[in-house]
Amino acid sequence: MSPLLEAEQAVLGAVLLDPGQLRQLGWLTPEHFHRPVHQALFAAVRKLHADRHPASTAESAVPLSWVTDAVAEAGLHVRGLSASYAHSLASACPRPGHAPVYGRMVLEGAIHRSITAHAIRLHQAARADALQGDVEGALRCADVLRDVLNDLARRWGTEPRPVDPGAPPAPGSAAAPPPGWAKAAEEERVLLGVLAERPKGMDEVVGWLRPDDFADPARGEVYRCLDALHHRGEPIDRITLLWEAQRRGLLADGTLSSDQLAALCGGVGPGSAEWLGEQVLRSSVTRTAAASARSIRALAEDEALAPGRLINHALHALGPLNEVRTRWQSANGHPPPTPPAPSPNGPPPARVHAARARSAPRPVSPPVSRPGVAPSPAAVRPPSRGHS
């Protein structure tokens, strides 16, 4: 049995033995449980507790109706739950007073699962957009993922902020070629030819197109050479472009050849540098979204990574997508959205409560009787005064 499954059973066993533990688990929701039967049972006990079930205010033994009513309520939403399984959950809980710690383990597993699922959706949306010549699906999924990360940070009790993980996580498998890569490569080639033959086109794209937007690093270096010549105000033609490439060592290290540059500077028909640049930038958006999704998924699948670090590393992995998205909006005449201002009063109370619920020391709770069993006389006998 996995530690996560044992933690889920322990949380449920704790609230079945001691309904008062639910007051310390307000930051935990049924969706954080992995098994559907556990989700239904936790939702049931929360509903009964909110409806002020007699067990929620019992000061002595927990009545047996607490378990039977919880099973009946959960049985309305899931099949296969029996009273015997509920009693086995109570037996699986070592200490009901440790419920906040068990809940923290459940939330930690939910954070990893949730981030993994949203990273997969982002990757699928990016590949679909690449086929359709669009970016909106990937950008919407990126927004959803960012909101999920911020919500998980609030529940975990940490401040969401991008943190560089250092060495990038190793992806589980080699990335497949992006859809439409042949078309994107042709658009890059034609754009460079247009810019080399008609340098005035640089004015249309230089404000938002970057060398890293090219899928082929060699073509990106050609654009870098064009950008440098344009920035210095020097003429652009086949000879000056070849000279700039040589000055940057691109010919010596084999990145480019004189024949490749000559082919770019000749035989190019009419074309709009701005339109072609937008196509290159659109491909860069979907390619960057897919790369961010792969990095975030690799982070989320590392079970040894603590949730706070996972959330902040995932926010950092979205950084390149945020940057290329801003330039895409600039190229299309849409100003980037204004980020929300930080709260002057510090972290939200819900986040502070979540953190305290997990880390604050708890008084030792008295032994809790099993449902339907009255406490023994020894359990309520006052301590002897005859010993010092």
Rank of each mutant, 00 (worst) to 15 (best):
S2L: 11
P3N: 05
L4D: 09
A7F: 02
V15P: 00
D18A: 08
Q21M: 11
L25S: 02
T29E: 13
P30Y: 00
E31M: 11
H32K: 01
H32Y: 13
H34L: 11
R35F: 04
V37M: 08
H38L: 01
Q39F: 01
A40I: 03
A43W: 01
H49R: 10
D51P: 07
R52I: 13
S60N: 11
L64Q: 12
T68Y: 11
A72E: 14
H77P: 07
R79V: 11
S82I: 01
S82F: 03
A86W: 00
C93V: 07
P94S: 02
P94G: 01
P96L: 01
V101K: 06
G103V: 06
L107A: 11
A110R: 00
A119C: 10
Q124S: 15
A126P: 12
A130I: 07
L131E: 12
E136Y: 11
L145N: 05
D147K: 10
R161G: 08
P162M: 10
P162Q: 10
P168E: 08
P169W: 04
A170G: 03
P171A: 01
S173N: 06
S173V: 11
A184L: 15
A185Y: 14
E186V: 15
E187I: 08
E187H: 15
V194A: 04
R219C: 09
A228Y: 13
H231V: 09
R232A: 15
E234P: 00
E234N: 08
L241I: 02
E244N: 04
R247C: 07
R248T: 05
G254K: 01
G254Q: 03
S257C: 02
D259K: 03
Q260G: 05
G269V: 07
L276V: 12
G277W: 12
V285E: 00
T286C: 14
T288G: 01
A289F: 00
R294C: 09
E301R: 14
E303T: 10
P307G: 07
G308S: 10
A314D: 06
A314K: 09
L321K: 02
S330M: 15
N332R: 15
G333I: 05
P337H: 04
P337M: 04
P339A: 05
R356D: 10
A357P: 04
R358F: 13
G372I: 01
P383H: 11
H387F: 14
